[in-house]
Design a protein around this nucleic acid. Structure first.
Length: 280
DNA sequence: CTCAGTGTTCAGTG
DNA sequence: TCACTGAACACTGA
């Protein structure tokens, strides 16, 4: 699920539970794909007993700083998630009940489990193995994080700078919005949402965009991300007017938004939901 | 059984 | 070298 708002929500969970705390118990799944060949024991041994000194995020990447280098970096891929296992969950588990996905009460697809001295616990899961976990020195020195463009929530460039960047690109707007070197953190649904509210067709080439169009796009994009962050990426609280609620359609003739037909095309290699009568 | 999927990377092309 | 496209990755769930 993770795009920028979901990853920011994850970072806040990690920060709330872990920052200032010592990691008393650490479990790292022996998943050579998620860990990119690094032995899980190596990661677990480094994390165990460390104190978390802070958390960070850029685009869809997050990290946990420790009292001793290196720090832990993560990316949730398409299906990864992080959540706190609350005291209620632990109590249920102790009583032999299963509050989580599996009969054992243990989360399915668990990749990482961190428990503080106080007994608070967070888990990361990923059923598709497109998530990544790795140790690195710092965001600045990390090749993946340092390759990102400005974060689309905290560092979104001013409209004139953005316009200068976009008009150099001959690709469809959809593809540019998904380019993490330009809009770090934007993913498939946010890109479509922003274009829908900015009334721009996803196939518009970057070279064709006027300054005023970019101003509107920038404003809509930021508002969408900011609201999604503020509701904790809880999609049930996204406004009714958002494409989000319609983009995957009911399949039962429900592919209308405010009376207009939603079209689905593959643009920039991804399924793109848009409304030709409203987006030009 | 087939196919799409809220992401990234890499090979191939122009 | 740059910009861009499409497939691969690995697996679930509809």
């Amino acid at each position: 699920m993770p795009e920028l708002p979901e990853v920011e929500t994850v970072r806040r969970i990690l920060d709330r539970v872990l920052t200032g705390r010592k990691l008393a118990e650490v479990e790292v799944a022996p998943d050579e794909i998620v860990l990119q060949g690094v032995p899980s024991e190596v990661v677990a041994a480094h994390l165990g007993g460390r104190t978390v000194t802070g958390t960070g995020r850029k685009g869809k990447y997050w990290w946990i700083e420790l009292d001793e280098k290196p720090m832990l970096f993560g990316h949730l891929g398409m299906a990864g998630w992080v959540r706190e296992i609350g005291a209620d969950t632990i109590r249920l588990r102790e009583h032999g009940q299963a509050p989580l996905d599996e009969p054992s009460g243990r989360p399915k697809f668990l990749k990482l489990r961190l428990q503080t001295e106080e007994g608070r616990e967070v888990v990361m899961t990923d059923g598709r193995r497109l998530a990544r976990l790795w140790l690195g020195a710092s965001p600045e020195e990390d090749p993946r994080v340092s390759a990102l463009g400005p974060d689309s929530w905290t560092e979104l460039p001013e409209a004139d700078d953005l316009h200068r960047m976009l008009v150099k690109r001959k690709a469809p707007l959809k593809a540019i919005l998904l380019d993490q070197k330009v809009f770090a953190g934007v993913g498939n649904w946010i890109a479509d949402e922003a274009m829908y509210h900015a009334r721009l067709a996803p196939g518009r080439l970057g070279t064709s965009l006027s300054l005023s169009e970019v101003e509107v796009l920038r404003e809509k994009l930021w508002q969408i991300v900011d609201l999604a962050v503020s509701v904790g990426a809880n999609s049930e609280q996204f406004p009714e007017s958002w494409m989000f609620h319609h983009r995957w359609g009911g399949g039962k003739g429900v592919d209308l938004i405010e009376g207009e037909a939603i079209r689905r095309d593959t643009i920039g290699g991804r399924t793109t939901a848009w409304v030709p009568t409203r987006q030009k």
